[in-house]
Nucleic acid binder design. Structure first.
Length: 93
DNA sequence: AGCCTTTGACCAGCG
DNA sequence: TCGCTGGTCAAAGGC
């Protein structure tokens, strides 16, 4: 599980036959945070795709601090979906 | 004591 | 209306 700085709670995991992939459902632990994260990967493949749903309403991760400035409640509610693709091993073959 | 993780069942939208 | 799929919730065990 690639740490992105936030804390997530897994609340589900199912195999999507449509894409033949395993999908895990994660949710931000913060109660004032409706941010969600979905992770899917091929069975037997090291690469995985992380799809962020919603945004954090409590600002930035507790880690690497310092960024807490821009957070805020002023952030209002921005809804940005991001999809990060982790293709670990660059198999040259 | 609190937190996390895992699995089954239920519900809702579609054809 | 039924069956299927995708998504979410709940309970228990270990550190």
């Amino acid at each position: 599980m690639p740490e992105d700085g936030y804390q997530w709670k897994k609340y589900g995991q199912k195999f999507i036959k449509n894409i033949q992939k395993i999908r895990s459902y994660f949710r931000c632990r913060d109660k004032r945070c409706c941010a969600k994260k979905k992770v899917e990967w091929h069975p037997g493949d090291p690469s995985l795709r992380i799809v962020y749903d919603g945004a954090h309403q409590h600002g930035s991760p507790s880690s690497t601090g310092g960024q807490g400035a821009g957070d805020g409640e002023g952030v209002g509610n921005r809804y940005e979906l991001s999809a990060q693709y982790f293709g670990g091993p660059p198999r040259s073959d």
